[in-house]
């Protein structure tokens, strides 16, 4: 296995783990954590791609940008979680399923 392959496999593993978390968790905080795991997978993939195409600096700068953007998303996600807890009194996703049909 080449370095690229190893890194891509681990990237996909991280994303898969995050996705799995999203499928099974019922807790909003854990949802945000699962999202973070997914993003980390994407970061690994970007850096690996940069290295594989001999543009490590490019890959790293992409990763930096993603980290910044992702932080914003995570912050908003957590802010939503705080607000949900305040308004609903619980972080359970099943309490957040009133819009259906």
């Amino acid at each position: 296995m080449s370095t690229l392959e190893i890194m891509l496999v681990s990237a996909f593993a991280l994303v898969g783990a995050g996705l799995y978390g999203l499928l099974i968790t019922r807790n909003l905080i854990k949802v945000v954590i699962a999202l973070q795991i997914m993003v980390k997978g994407a970061l690994v993939a970007l850096v690996a791609a940069g290295q594989a195409s001999d543009q490590l600096a490019l890959g790293q700068s992409l990763a930096m940008t993603v980290i910044v953007a992702d932080t914003v998303v995570a912050v908003i996600g957590l802010a939503f979680a705080v607000q949900v807890k305040r308004v609903r009194g619980t972080l359970d996703l099943r309490a957040l399923a009133e819009l259906r049909g």
Binding site: L22, L23, T25, A97, E98, L99, G101
Partner: peptide
């Protein structure tokens, strides 16, 4: 078909998969 719109986030993510 409306029954598939469960409103539960986990099912929604399964839709993406």
């Amino acid at each position: 078909l409306r029954a598939t719109q469960t409103g539960l986030l986990n099912w929604n993510v399964l839709g993406i998969v």
